[in-house]
Design a protein around this nucleic acid. Structure first.
Lengths: 134, 134
DNA sequence: TACTAAAGGATAATAATTATCTTTTAAGAG
DNA sequence: CTCTTAAAAGATAATTATTATCCTTTAGTA
């Protein structure tokens, strides 16, 4: 993914800090603000927490990234992608994506409610395979 | 629903404040902390915000109520009930429940991920029927 | 290379939540 | 029906999370 281009398309300046944040999200997956701050500090030791927040908000507004609100946990952020489902292991806190087609669910809900649906936030909680074995 | 009994079962004292909070949640549906505080103040003018928070947390820990985390909105609380789906209208902010069987979705996710799933948090966002007409 | 609006950095302010302490009260024992 | 006590209420301080402000720096463009 070319983040420089993506930022420019949204009339956001391409700064090293922004590229760093986006790259971190891509590589490290689902991170909360605190985790992001620790990691980004390694690259930009003088980066301000305010800068991180401002960038997160700017990128959210432009749909470059998505906030995932998770029951009993802090919000995590990820590069925006096709709608998918999130899984949380309640034992080890592993947090992963799983790609499942949710069209039939959305259709059924749409039918029943007469809502025109465009967005989904789905988090399923349980126990991952490893933790089941313990 | 007999809330007195429910509270006792969880070894929580039955206080007028608690009964008031639960009754409000039952009658008014999905409320955030601020909305709850305004409403409960009408019944208990001297109630403290701390009391509200402490009760929300105690009831959450005992699964009497559920917190619903909603993209771009404050958390709302509802009486715990069977798993269901939440709908948010992005225009008028209407927030409703819709009961849809999610077993097949959960089964599919479980199959693919080998997670043993017990809990779900599903919020779909779109435009309600009324707002579509505008 | 120079200009300017946007972004960065430092820090203050605000908002949300939790902790602490004292007083009150629900619940059970006698 | 008292008495006792642990839990809960209420008031407020402390903490945490987030946003706003202000000045400096820099990316983008002429």
């Amino acid at each position: 993914m070319n983040y420089e281009l993506l930022l420019r398309e949204h009339k956001l300046k391409v700064t090293p800090q922004r590229l760093g944040i986006l790259t971190l999200m891509q590589n490290a997956g689902h991170l909360d603000v605190e985790e992001l701050f620790v990691l980004i500090k390694k690259q930009f030791s003088s980066i301000s927490l305010a800068t991180l927040y401002k960038n997160i908000n700017a990128m959210l507004e432009n749909s470059l990234i998505t906030e995932i609100k998770i029951p009993r946990h802090k919000s995590k952020y990820e590069i925006a992608k096709e709608p998918h489902i999130h899984l949380l292991c309640q034992k080890c806190n592993e947090f992963i994506d799983v790609s499942v087609n949710i069209d039939s669910l959305v259709d059924e809900v749409s039918m029943k409610s007469h809502y025109q649906l465009m967005d989904s936030s789905i988090v399923l909680c349980g126990v991952c395979e490893k933790c089941q074995a313990l």
